[in-house]
Design a protein around this nucleic acid. Structure first.
Length: 526
RNA sequence: GCGUCCGUAGCUCAGCUGGAUAGAGCACUGGUUUGCGGUACCAGCGGUCAGGGAUUCGAAUUCCUUCGGGCGCACCA
């Protein structure tokens, strides 16, 4: 809708036009301050220019009024245009808000180490990534959702050691001391039990079999992670194993060319040449690769796969890592601007105003699965999708358990359910409702219709700006308008019943589509 | 110290392609159609958009700076 108007104005004025939605509805559906910009070069007052420009608009299918007010040009869309658009959308619900983008995009997110279950910080990144994924796909982008599995390095050895110690403690009932660094948590107790069955109890005391145990354990932990994600409707297309990458190291090292050098018997990345604070070690003197080496191979492998764009979602604590990875990408001969690294900030959860209790044996973290269980997948998703990902967030989970208008997910669902109920209650058939033209509506109905038809713009804006919270924000506003309208007007039995129900169906379509892009199914009954 | 993200109502947060009187929820106060789901709606209270400077016809939005806070600053992942 906005694109359509925008394109029309660009053609008319032969330049890009800033188009905005006036806060005050009496100014119409869209407006542009273009006259202010033109005033300087035309050496005329904005008001005069606006008047002339507005006056030059003749009859149009799209607008029913074009007016100038105090230098702004305000546009009012015609009822027939809005009506036709809504009718089309209701007849093609799957197509509503779809885009025609075609780029192939590789979206990497979560990528938590397979050494323990997901915590609440991971959950935020997971929801953010999956929401972007859904939005992008709706717009037509061909997106691959990928999980990079850090299944190599010290952490995996440590996982095996931790599991052995846990086995000696909880299975063999030995008295043991857990070093500070070791992984702890209920999941290890469970794994120890499983390991005892699978390998026999001697696995816990045999130093020789640590590796065997490690390989098994990391797979089991990854399965747990995948299950936690599945519980909130998140699925990945591909998993890339870090361990499997190292056989390509020689080739990648060669490709780095001048980007790599040897000093002090170590291999370094000359990252300082591309904006990093200093150069970084990639291979230690004993020949073991650092984490960065894996990431370099991984990003080389990503770019070799030939996507138009690469999006990584990282925890904000990794932001210092951006410069060196981008530097590596440049040395590999690729355009680092195609790699976009988005950060998801820390989360602190509250419950009734108090810090959320960490699960007892999970170590010092709040488990994602605990929160999912407590407030449900829908609420968890809404909570994280509704806040800007790059600001630290404090959230009280109790707010999402309430069953009233203070809980946005409840409020939005209630609007949807209300529509379903009233349509059900009406004696009119769906065909009768659909046959009604959305014309001759009063101003409030017109405003509601316009709001409902804005969803496509919101989807595009949310995805392109990577600010997914715009979608839930919009759904709240739309729902509020619906509730108010419902309160102010009677529907059933009125002369306009068919039209108003059709209007409501349009609102329901936007809510349902919007929620589904957040991985949430709209409720038809509360 | 350096880098980075942030600082909007008492609290949690929107708004930031610069534009017409700064928004929502919570909290607090007071109301609402003999009502299709009141599981809703309305009003009031509350803001020097951290401070200062610059650009501009116009800045919460851009730039600089000060102050305050989070995070990072490994040959750990």
């Amino acid at each position: 809708m906005k694109q359509r108007v925008s394109a029309l104005l660009r053609e008319r004025f032969e330049r890009d036009v800033v188009l905005e939605k006036p806060k005050d509805r009496s100014f119409g559906h869209f407006s542009t301050p273009i006259a202010f910009a033109l005033s300087k070069e035309l050496r005329k007052s904005p008001m005069l220019i606006a008047e002339e420009l507005a006056g030059a608009f003749g009859q149009s299918d799209i607008f029913c009024a074009v007016e100038s007010v105090k230098g702004y040009i305000n546009f009012r869309l015609s009822e027939s245009f809005l009506s036709q658009y809504a009718t089309w959308a209701l007849e093609h619900p799957e197509e509503f808000g779809r885009g025609s983008k075609q780029e192939r995009v590789l979206l990497e997110f979560v990528s938590a180490n397979p050494t323990g279950p997901l915590h609440i910080g991971h959950a935020r990144g997971a929801v953010y990534g999956d929401t972007l994924l859904r939005l992008g796909r709706h717009l037509g982008y061909d997106i691959t959702a990928e999980y990079y599995v850090n299944d190599a390095g010290n952490q995996i050895d440590l996982l095996a050691l931790s599991l052995q110690l846990e086995g000696r403690s909880s299975v063999l009932h030995e008295k043991v001391e857990f070093p500070e660094k070791f992984y702890r948590g209920e999941y290890l107790t469970e794994l120890a039990k499983e390991a005892a069955k699978q390998f026999g109890r001697e696995i816990f005391t045999d130093d020789e079999r640590g590796n065997e145990l490690a390989l098994w354990a990391k797979d089991r932990v990854l399965e747990m992670i995948v299950a936690d994600l599945r519980d909130v409707n998140i699925h990945f297309d591909t998993f890339v194993s870090e361990a499997s990458l190292y056989e390509r190291w020689e080739r990648v090292l060669e490709k780095l060319g001048e980007g790599a050098f040897i000093d002090d018997e170590k291999v370094w990345l000359r990252s300082s040449a591309h904006g990093d604070e200093k150069d970084r070690v990639v291979v230690r003197e004993d020949g073991r690769a650092t984490y960065l080496a894996g990431d370099i191979i991984y990003h080389n492998q990503k770019f070799e796969r030939g996507y138009a764009r690469y999006i990584n979602i990282w925890g904000a604590d990794h932001h210092g890592y951006i410069a060196r990875v981008k530097a590596a990408v440049r040395f590999l001969g690729y355009d680092a601007d195609r790699l976009e690294i988005l950060l998801s900030q820390m989360v602190s959860l509250l419950k009734d105003g108090e810090p959320y209790k960490m699960s007892k044996r999970a170590g010092n973290v709040i488990l994602m699965s605990d929160v999912t269980q407590e407030i449900g997948a829908d609420a968890l998703r809404f909570m994280f999708a509704s806040k800007k990902s790059d600001t630290a967030l404090e959230f009280d989970v109790e707010a999402l358990k309430r069953e009233d208008s203070s809980n946005p997910i409840y409020y939005i669902n209630y609007a949807h359910a209300r529509i379903c109920t009233i349509v059900e209650k009406s004696a009119l058939s769906r065909d009768e409702i659909m046959a009604a033209p959305l014309e001759g509506l009063n101003e409030d109905a017109d405003a509601l219709l316009f709001e409902a038809l804005l969803l496509p713009e919101v989807i595009e804006d949310a995805f392109e700006s990577r600010q997914v919270q715009k979608l839930p924000e919009y759904l709240k506003v739309l729902s509020a308008r619906l509730h108010k309208f419902y309160y102010d007007y009677r529907i059933i039995g009125e002369a306009d019943e068919a039209k108003l129900l059709k209007l409501f169906l349009m609102v329901a379509l936007s809510i349902k589509t919007g929620l589904s892009l957040m991985g949430i199914a709209a409720k038809e009954k509360m």
